[in-house]
Nucleic acid binder design. Sequence first.
DNA 1: CTGCAATTAGTGTATGCGCAACTAGTGCAT
DNA 2: ATGCACTAGTTGCGCATACACTAATTGCAG
Lengths: 151, 151
Amino acid sequence: MGIADDAVEVRAHGWRTLAAVHGLIETALEKALQSRHGLSVVEYTVMDALDRQDGWHMRMRQLARAAALSNSATTRLVTRLEDRGLLTRVLCADDRRGIYTELTPAGAALLTEARPTHDAVLAEALDEAGATPELAPLVAALRDLAPQTLA
Amino acid sequence: MGIADDAVEVRAHGWRTLAAVHGLIETALEKALQSRHGLSVVEYTVMDALDRQDGWHMRMRQLARAAALSNSATTRLVTRLEDRGLLTRVLCADDRRGIYTELTPAGAALLTEARPTHDAVLAEALDEAGATPELAPLVAALRDLAPQTLA
DNA sequence: CTGCAATTAGTGTATGCGCAACTAGTGCAT
DNA sequence: ATGCACTAGTTGCGCATACACTAATTGCAG
């Protein structure tokens, strides 16, 4: 459940503030993406990374880094999405250790559908966090970093 | 394992950057606290919150908020630490639903022992994150927020 | 060519989390 | 005092993760 709608007890600055804002956003995104599109945050992150990779495939290891996940977690995550028909594994010819993954049309469609939700909830969560006095400075700093994706 | 020592693939700004920095710090803290003191980050967070609570006890619910955890996770976390003799549950007389928790001397001692590790690793992780170009702006912003705890 | 370290992905196992259901206790209305 | 809504904490359960290990492949040293 996490921090949610209630007042957050933030006692330390810096790292604690960062953790609080992170938790707040992640929880909000998790609930929204899960209920409306059946996706977790990491799943969305992986699909988004695949989509942005100029429409081309990525290796498991790259996906793992993009989502800050262990390789085992990546394996199982890709398996889940593959079972749902959202992406496919493609053996690559030049290095037979490597496995490429790419979005299926269904995956791309779901992603297109989920992206507005993601962006809206993110903006909303940031506004909410910004309303908490202890978190406001960090949120303001975040907006300065990337106004186009956060505003 | 997470992001760790390798270069992080940060494609989006803002939220992605926040997540990357958070993951980097949390992974570093987790490894250090776990290996040197047998504590996870949340366990340290809870004990630290208890210690800072002007030496007095806290209720489960407060702990849950301080660590951004669900109540069930808090219950089991407190149980773990109680089994290790680091804190104790104290029934409170005025409201018999409530349960206070407070550090034992052993818990306070372990915390005192772990705090330097925590602070040092945090500073180190921030330096490392600051060395990554995509993350540097956020790290700089973080330092501005609370130089006394982060520098 | 052969052997061996390094790399990439997958599997078994244990741990920790959230959700939902449950118990116990409080406070208010009647 | 009784009933009822509400709060605090705990427990059963399923799920996702990390760690340690294994299998397959590559590349390099000799």
